[in-house]
Amino acid sequence: MSSITDDDDIISTLPDAVICHILSFLHTKQSVATSILSKRWINLWRSVPVLDFWDVELDDRETYFRFNEFVYSVLLSRNSIKSFFIDIWYDDPDLAHLGIPNVIKWINYVVQHGVEHLKIYIGTVDFIPKFPISILSCRTLVVLQFEGLVMKGFSSIRLPSLERLRFQDIKFTNVRDLLLLLAGCPILEDLRAGYLSFDSEDTLTYQERESLSLNKLTKANLGYTFCHFPLKALQNVEHLFIEINKVYRGCDEIPNFHNLTNLGLYSINYSWHLLVNVLKHCPNLQIVALSQGTANGTIEDVPENNWVDPIFVPQCLSLHLRTCKLLNFLGQQGELLFARYILKNARVLRTMKIHCSEDLKIERELFFCPRASPICDVIIKSVCK
């Protein structure tokens, strides 16, 4: 790369803080490479608050040692690290066993140096790495994202500054460890978790289910959690997506979601009475998206005639619901009756969007049914399978 003279390098006239902000959007290897552009750039990369080692694949020992040396040199070049992103895939199991202890050391280092945003993925071919326990006592951490790890061996969690938590493909010992993790995040605002599994299927006691409180939480996405999650802990959210079959049990009490305006529900075989019961507990709901699956992927699994219009109309239908989305629509009688029920009672509904299979003909069923809202549009979108 040829050198650029100071007279021609207009970007170099920008303040250091602006240049470092620009460099923070690059992978760290690219950021370091800018040091040869001109004298103005030689040391700027050292002040970039973001270290980004993303999409790294290590397939031989030479590449492994070269990468390790690079990371250590970058870490030791600065005292303050605001963001640390690491995504490593080890092609060789021996390299993984050799390299993961180093990754743990890097994470420990940034935790000790005031990291605020941490994003981790460590991929291997024959085992699942353990979650670095040092993270769970990081007082500066604001955003934590991790994937593909085992969470075991921790007894206490103190994440007093954490506002956003996202994780998936995580294996816990039991559901209590999941609740312990969340309980250690007192100001958590945004939670996204999916594809969680547990070594033990022990059920929680009533006291354990009632003890979790996430009062600051405004957004929650619990897709494919494979556990019964305490719904009461989510009652202050404004945006919520859950797989209702996994999270909810028939004996559970559904709390009132007074702040909830945007709801997504995924269900295996629509349970109509449950759906209406959920709507009754969301008095201010404005947007709802309902998606369904079947027990083994066949249409025959879906009950057709189990719908009867409830006597009680939920408040959200009467006063607030503006958008209703019905996804994976199969055209079963129960689905059509539910859609008609929404149209007949949603007074301020603006749009009903239905995503169905390509050959499904339901226009006549819905376009001419009674509508409480004079401005509602029914949009049917065919989706090729």
Rank of each mutant, 00 (worst) to 15 (best):
G194I: 10
L212E: 00
P230T: 01
P160L: 10
L217F: 01
T173W: 08
I187Y: 00
Y195Q: 14
N245T: 13
S197E: 13
L234I: 08
L178N: 00
L188P: 10
D177R: 09
N221G: 13
L162P: 00
L180V: 07
L162G: 05
D177G: 07
N221K: 09
V175N: 03
R158T: 13
Q207H: 13
E243V: 12
S197Q: 12
K232Y: 07
R209M: 14
L214F: 00
V175E: 11
D199Y: 05
L234F: 06
L196P: 03
D199S: 11
I187F: 02
L231R: 05
C227S: 09
R192T: 14
L231M: 05
G223A: 15
E189Y: 03
Q235C: 11
L204V: 10
P230I: 02
L165G: 03
N174R: 07
F229T: 11
N221M: 06
P230S: 02
L179G: 04
T205A: 11
Y224W: 07
N215F: 06
L188C: 08
E238F: 01
Y195C: 15
Q207L: 14
R164G: 07
H239E: 14
L180I: 07
T225R: 03
D190S: 03
D202G: 03
F241G: 04
G223L: 11
F172G: 04
E243K: 14
L182Y: 03
L214D: 06
K232L: 10
E208P: 04
L214Y: 01
N221T: 09
L181M: 06
L217V: 07
L212N: 01
K171H: 10
L196A: 06
L191I: 00
L182R: 05
G184Y: 10
I242S: 09
L165I: 02
R209Y: 10
S211P: 07
F198T: 06
R209T: 15
E189Q: 13
R176K: 12
L217Q: 03
D202Y: 08
L222C: 05
I244D: 00
Q168C: 12
L165Q: 03
S211G: 04
D177A: 12
I170C: 01
L234Y: 09
P230R: 01
D202C: 08
K232R: 05
T203R: 08
F229V: 09
T205L: 11
L217N: 03
K232P: 01
L165S: 06
I170N: 01
G223S: 15
